[in-house]
Write a protein that binds this DNA or RNA. Structure first.
Lengths: 221, 221
DNA sequence: ATAGATTGGTTCAATATCGGTTCACTACAG
DNA sequence: CTGTAGTGAACCGATATTGAACCAATCTAT
């Protein structure tokens, strides 16, 4: 009785998957066959269709899983992020950091702005590259800290962790020079100035300009 | 019997760890095995998972310990992100998603745009709320997928994972109605239209408008 | 200092469940 | 009659859990 059963079962499954009936693992094919009152081969066809369009993933000996399911594995997301390219991350920094500077200009407390200024000064006075690097990063991080958006702050933290991993290290070394350090100090000062004036639009623009310099130095364009 | 018990135990442990039940040392594997009514090997698998993502550290002859609260660790960053407020996340979505839409308008392949359109149509034709939710999320995700920025895509993934956690679930339920669903469809159509016209600025604006609607519904302003 | 207890590390065989494959058989549509 | 789709069954290989044994590192009490 060719009733196109496989297709019907596929759509039935699709519905029950998107309804969240199965968090990540769907029942074994043999069970589904019983439930739908159909041969296992037929269920296999249906599951095969959903596998082709990426809805399901099958694993021999384990079971069949809904593809989008990341029930627990934020860890997996992190692993994927480790492969982030400098260009991709720079693109995101260009989005987030100017916004953070804007938020900071309106939301920061006086004490927080002092902390930003301290980081700026310490970076300017730094004598070796690692020290400058540290206070440079700290300057940026403290701006995120006064954006008053915890999630934004954590995103910056995330990017910082990723950038502290191996492939980036070499790149930072190559792109560093005394001349650039001075440029960064001047640009940082401009950002700090706008923050202290509580000028969100100016802070945003100054941060954007600074990041464009960084991008040019880092990516060599 | 592939019951995939190890994963469940891992999440149970993760919960009890973040609840502060164990200050630094967790019970011996043999005890945990008894407590969970499971073989020690299975507990070892679970603990192994938590060790991989940096949550636990094992030491022969001493015991298993929760990793020192290193604020610069990925695991710690994720834990902090779990407390993200809807308002904070919405602020970031308003930054990232319009940008993603803009990138998508210029970078997407024809096939990718078809996938976006499919998600849009399926969402419109959805008959129940869970199905709509699923394809709505899929629509947004597929736009990120054609932004051609892997990091951006993963950030969206991250936000999706966070939003699938308990406090958000209730909120989504409350904010859903047939009228809003129709509004979303219209707005999605506008976004899709700009993408198909390869109009980055238009796509960005359409996405921004859509997210402002979502924000209003979600945060009730 | 030594002995014994505790703890994680490793290995193994047995068992059960799962998807992957094949095949002979049946039913229907063109 | 032929091609297509579903049936039912058997068997394969992969994976998970069990239960147990033994090792090696560490700690504790003597």
């Amino acid at each position: 009785m060719p009733k196109l059963v496989a297709g019907d079962i596929a759509t039935a499954l699709r519905k029950r998957i998107s309804s969240g009936e199965w968090e990540d693992r769907i029942p074994p094919e043999r069970d589904l066959a019983g439930e739908f009152g159909v041969a296992r081969n037929t269920v296999r066809r249906a599951v095969g269709l959903l596998e082709e369009d990426g809805t399901l993933v099958r694993q021999v000996g384990r079971g069949t899983f809904v593809a989008a399911a990341d029930p627990n594995s934020m860890a997996a997301a992190f692993t994927r992020m480790e492969g982030t390219s400098p260009a991709d991350m720079m693109e995101i920094r260009l989005l987030l950091e100017p916004a953070a500077a804007g938020f900071a200009a309106t939301n920061a407390s006086a004490g927080e702005l002092n902390a930003v200024r301290d980081a700026y000064q310490t970076a300017c006075e730094a004598t070796d590259m690692p020290e400058f690097e540290h206070w440079d990063a700290e300057f940026h991080h403290r701006i995120f800290a006064c954006s008053r958006n915890e999630f934004l702050k954590e995103l910056h933290n995330l990017m910082r962790i990723l950038r502290n991993q191996s492939p980036w290290f070499e790149m930072k070394k190559r792109s560093f020079s005394e001349e650039r350090r001075q440029t960064y100090c001047v640009e940082h000062e401009a950002i700090l100035d706008r923050l202290l004036r509580r000028d969100p639009e100016g802070a945003r623009a100054a941060m954007l300009a600074h990041l464009q310099t960084v991008a040019k130095n880092l990516l060599g364009r």
